[in-house]
Design a protein around this nucleic acid. Structure first.
Lengths: 180, 180
DNA sequence: TGGTAAGTTCAGAAAGATATGAAACATGGG
DNA sequence: CCCATGTTTCATATCTTTCTGAACTTACCA
């Protein structure tokens, strides 16, 4: 059940689902969640929880939690068919938007708080060390710089939908590698 | 013993070590490893495995493995004191360079292979779908675009020391799952 | 009402990641 | 050659994350 290995003789759609699952763990989303996401992206028609769970061979409970998470990221949407009590799900169609939504949210809740603490401790260390210990002071400053760079780039990049979207193709073009 | 919570009344240096440990898990390095790294960054003089393990209250075995990993990332260096059989370790002094070394290496061994499989499956899916199914085709193309953008941004970003200051660490977090 | 077909939650099982400590391995002197 | 000292490896323990399945809730309809 659940996650399987990717082999050549399975249908392309399944290979995609599994590889997207692996992709998920690269950017910090668990495999089941990413697999559901992949499945919905490849299905234009809405799917019920039950169908999804059966298709991916995961429990209904797990599917329910994953769908909740995906709803939380805003990358899927619930649709109701009239005269049917079931909840059906479709993927938002703008893939880049989805991607940004996830990255942004993860940054906000995982990256930002940690960086804040590190910065705070760096400040105390600098104070404490006063002017002494050149080498250490230099490293502290380098680290502060690194952190603030990370923060600024992150904020700039993720701050605005428009900026992010227009920035990406720009980088693409100037890299000299024609896309597609 | 080992990892502790960060509280105001502990010395700034320890607060830094612990917070850098947390930072580590944001970009996919386990806490012990990141803590050792922090300790070495804040110590200009070389430290032996034994001293490190005692200082951080972790086992010598664990310390040994973490040091090995850090050597693998190229962010610490082994130095020998004449007339002493012990191995001493010092951190490379350029923090940004270290950071880049880690991110670059993680990209190479975790991000690139996964992206490659996803791309391959996207290609087969496109072929398979032929011209039919507009909506799905459109999504496939969007995803290909997203992937190639990520790749290009990553390469460009990591290719040049100067540009290379962020984005990927935000995206790349492995939770340690996809080793080597 | 009671029955049923959903959806959600959550305690605990299973899987996975990390850490320990002791045994195996190395090496440099006497 | 053997001891002392230091390092690495690895089976096992611990801690964390993910998943399951059953209990619980809700909404509809006869």
């Amino acid at each position: 059940m659940g996650v399987m290995t990717i082999s050549d003789d399975m249908p392309a759609i399944d290979r995609f689902i599994e590889s997207w699952g692996a992709m998920g763990s690269v950017w910090g989303i668990n495999a089941s969640t990413a697999r559901i996401h992949a499945l919905l992206m490849m299905n234009t028609d809405a799917m019920s929880l039950d169908t999804i769970a059966k298709r991916l061979r995961i429990s209904r409970g797990n599917a329910s939690m994953c769908l909740k998470e995906l709803r939380g990221w805003g990358v899927i949407r619930l649709v109701k068919e009239p005269g049917d009590r079931r909840d059906y799900y479709v993927s938002e169609s703008d893939v880049q938007k989805m991607f940004l939504a996830i990255v942004r949210e993860r940054k906000r809740r995982e990256f930002d708080p940690v960086v804040e603490v590190v910065e705070e401790t760096l400040r105390s260390l600098k104070e404490e060390a006063g002017g002494r210990e050149d080498e250490v002071q230099a490293r502290l400053e380098q680290m502060e710089e690194l952190l603030s760079t990370l923060k600024v780039v992150g904020d700039r990049f993720l701050g605005s939908e428009r900026l992010a979207k227009s920035l990406l193709p720009l980088l693409l073009r100037s890299s000299g590698r024609a896309k597609q």
